[in-house]
Write a protein that binds this DNA or RNA. Sequence first.
DNA 1: TTCAACATGCAACAGGGTTGCAAGATATTT
DNA 2: AAATATCTTGCAACCCTGTTGCATGTTGAA
Lengths: 137, 137
Amino acid sequence: MEQLREMLKGHQLRTTTCREDVLSTFISKKNALSHGDLEGMLGENYDRVTIYRTLKTFLEKGIIHKVLDDEGLRYALCSQSCSEEKHQHDHIHFKCNECGETNCIENLHIPAVKLPEGYIPENFNLLIQGTCPKCKS
Amino acid sequence: MEQLREMLKGHQLRTTTCREDVLSTFISKKNALSHGDLEGMLGENYDRVTIYRTLKTFLEKGIIHKVLDDEGLRYALCSQSCSEEKHQHDHIHFKCNECGETNCIENLHIPAVKLPEGYIPENFNLLIQGTCPKCKS
DNA sequence: TTCAACATGCAACAGGGTTGCAAGATATTT
DNA sequence: AAATATCTTGCAACCCTGTTGCATGTTGAA
């Protein structure tokens, strides 16, 4: 509770119940969430648009980041030190084809890639699809 | 022309003008295309739905594959040997933040990644964003 | 407590993507 | 070359995602 307020304040955001709920949902569920997921969980309390705007705000402030998979867009908490100015997300996302969950794999960075002449990379995004530990029989 | 018919036949597809046009667009443009791109180029000749269905068919037959970036979904030609049963796409996509184009980088594979215990990977998808050779000033 | 700045809800809209169905085109057989 | 079964297309309708404008409600700071 108080923790949430601190997190929001730390990013110069006013504390509202919607922001607290969205943030605490991200913290309790650990996998990446789509807008639809959040709407399903919180939609009776808040307008769709408010949830969209909350996600947008969190994105801009560096609280969450985008996670892409073949089904669409999701969001996940930024591990620690992202800010409005600087995002560092060279980590790996794993999507399980059985349960459908997408997770960030922490502590594992994308290996270096030698691009052909002339390409200037800025951002890396590696998605691995397969079967997660929970679902392997 | 005749080439296109052969490609379609090779995948057990009837030759129709829409399929020929979509296929030849993918061949001439070399970057990944969204449905919207194709609709912009061919939309006066074919219904939106037909283009969607053409893309879906090509996907299923292994003629094209999905390319993800932060803006959404695009499609690109499969380099060679994909079939309905087996896709192999462990290659790299590069999206230029200047011109917005996304391209497959051929001849460059994703380096091996050691996943934690229990994860069984099947598919890799690496998106690199940055500036492409054409746009670097 | 007051007030400016910010957040929310509502309505309305644009775009992406899908489905059902009737009409049209394709490849094949005769 | 005509007939037929099968596949494709176009149309209409629909759902989901995401956005914008505006009036109303809340927040935090003075």
